[in-house]
Design a protein around this nucleic acid. Structure first.
Lengths: 212, 212, 212, 212
DNA sequence: TCATAAACGAGACGGTACGTCTTGTCTTTAG
DNA sequence: CTAAAGACAAGACGTACCGTCTCGTTTATGA
């Protein structure tokens, strides 16, 4: 996707030994590996450095803190979501729900997301960094799905742009929130059946829920 | 509500000096205070001990880890949710959504919930502890609301018990997930307007969303 | 030998349950055992209590500190020194030197003596307790040996009582000091040969030392 | 005198920040100060670190235990003993006895020596460390004094080298043992009069002791 | 015989120090 | 000027003992 420049990538002059790009790759990879093995709280900078075959100084030269390093390391994991045209709004929603659920089943994603969100509850700067690096990037999926449904005639066009944006946000919160809650809090699987029930509810409302 | 026994509450025999219940109260209170002031990551056991006027040993005699202590400390905060009869399903849902949002606006609740969930992504024991201490306790609200709506004739009775349980779980995940995501991830307020839009969506489905 | 009353043996009235003498015995025995196994610094009151099958309270009811307990426990070990008449001053000295060395070869005695002395360097009360419980008790051996030698005509009688006492102290310090230093500091064995050389030096002076 | 390398002075390669020699000096100084003020048993590593203006980790990087630290800290104190030529064997011995006694009157020396010896009774490694760092270093004084006395004709030359070494050890144990016992166990002062009596006894034997 | 009073076991309590670990910085040599 | 290595100050961790304090129970008197 797009390039993510380092927060500390000042690249002031042309002088001196250039930074090793291999080190960057190794560090991010080591961070993801450590996150899976140890979890957020037991992940240490020293350990990441050793795994990456790098000095601790090199880490701190590039990232200011554990949080920022981890965000950068995991952000890329969430870029794989996409919305192929499955023919109907129903199918599109079910598809993306299952795709998201699959993503959250992987330990690194699961751990990364919640840990980063948790850490962010006390730090507005971190929170907005997460939103711009991870969350907002996925909102385009909602817009894309709605446009497609409107083209198909499944949904009406909305004249009021502001209200349209609000509705998109609401739908995003409902879909993402439900999947995350089901997966991480209730700790139940998001399978075909659940995805179907959820999509039905989303499209037709509470009264549509019937025995299945 | 119901009693919450300690994880380490072996209380084997009748022998020895009994554990101080005042210490318990003081520790849980101090934990909540420290959580608000410092957040999860800067909260230390030593600090909690000092605030509670208690020795560190006393903490460790009762709780095996910071996580378990914090869970026990904050679980009680979530017991204040209730579902007064507001006359219609719509009003009931809107009411509980706003109530939940208000709860999550308080820093201790917000911090505690996410931190504890994040920590739990690596520890099944912890996760189930959270579910039994916090989450499942609130599921009764869904059951209560549904029963009331059925009595009013707003919702049909479901014959299949299993399917009814599944639907209740789904609705719980959708409501809780949406509010949590809106509040903690999107970092936008859950106000009257949002609650109304969300409730409309939940009751009538996607197609019902119109400009407002 | 003589009875050693407890430091805390207040025995105020006649009322109440009398202190268990079995506990006393068990505690002192356990203390000696723990001292041998663990050494002074790793010996803990709790451990002694467990070994003795006794509550910690029972220990503290009788002894104010670890030091006092250990002193009382080991004092009895040093009471076994005696001075049988071996026919000459030379034989008497050699005999007692070897006897003392044998005593110090036993781990409990060795550990106990040095630990207690070391602890005492900062506490005059403890020091005098050690002297009266252990050290001075052995000074009679010097007096006894001198009297016997004088009776044999090996040593002259001393008219000046004060000077005689000073000399006895000097001889005690030389004998005890040399054996202790050889054993505990130089960490070399006190065997027949060394005892003979030492006794020769003590009796005849430096010039008497010849190749052997 | 000679250099004393650290026990943990691995100094493997040339890489990394070198250990601060100022920290070393500060730590050893702080240790001696703390030892005088608090005594062995109340001396804590944390306190030494604070006094030295150093982190606890820095202490543990260099010394494995309190014992080893204290030994290194106090070893230098015993290097001040020397044997100026006072004209006769008698005067030389008296001089060094008084010098040694003066040394042992200083609280840090007194406390350190006994505590370290006591601690060593259970640890052969520690014991040999003490011998090489403190005790054996002083044995040269005996050899020096004997050589001088032989040159003066006060003592005969010994042909048998092995026996000569044994005699030197014996004399060392007697002098050091007597002074230490008098000072630390009997807790009586080593003054001019005692030094004179002791030297007379050592040179001429028991029979030489007369009223004075 | 039964009340009284002290001693008992068990174990929780407030403290203090331990030795280890992690953080983020600093200081060296090598490239 | 960066890299690797590793020492540094700071401070939290969870454990181990200390000596004290409740508890409920047991064991001798002496009223």
């Amino acid at each position: 996707m797009c390039s993510r420049p380092h927060p500390k990538a000042v690249r002031s002059g042309r002088l001196g030994r250039p930074r090793s790009t291999e080190a960057d790759t190794a560090i991010l990879h080591a961070t993801r590996a450590a996150l899976v093995e140890l979890g957020w709280s037991k992940l240490t900078m020293g350990d990441v450095a050793i795994r990456a075959g790098v000095a601790k100084t090199t880490l701190y030269r590039r990232w200011a803190s554990k949080s920022e390093l981890v965000i950068d390391a995991v952000a890329v994991l969430f870029d794989e979501l996409e919305l192929p045209d499955r023919g109907s709004l129903m199918a599109d929603v079910e598809g993306v729900v299952l795709q998201f659920a699959t993503l959250l089943e992987r330990p690194e994603t699961r751990t990364a997301l919640m840990a980063v969100v948790a850490e962010s509850t006390r730090d507005e700067a971190l929170r907005s960094r997460i939103r711009s690096a991870i969350v907002n990037r996925q909102k385009t999926l909602v817009l894309q799905g709605r446009a497609r449904a409107q083209a198909r005639g499944e949904l009406p066009y909305e004249e009021n742009a502001e209200s349209a944006a609000r509705n998109a946000d609401l739908i995003f919160d409902v879909i993402a929130g439900a999947v995350v809650h089901r997966t991480l809090v209730s700790a139940e699987p998001v399978d075909q059946a659940w995805a179907h029930s959820f999509t039905t509810l989303l499209l037709s409302g509470l009264t549509s829920l019937r025995n299945s």
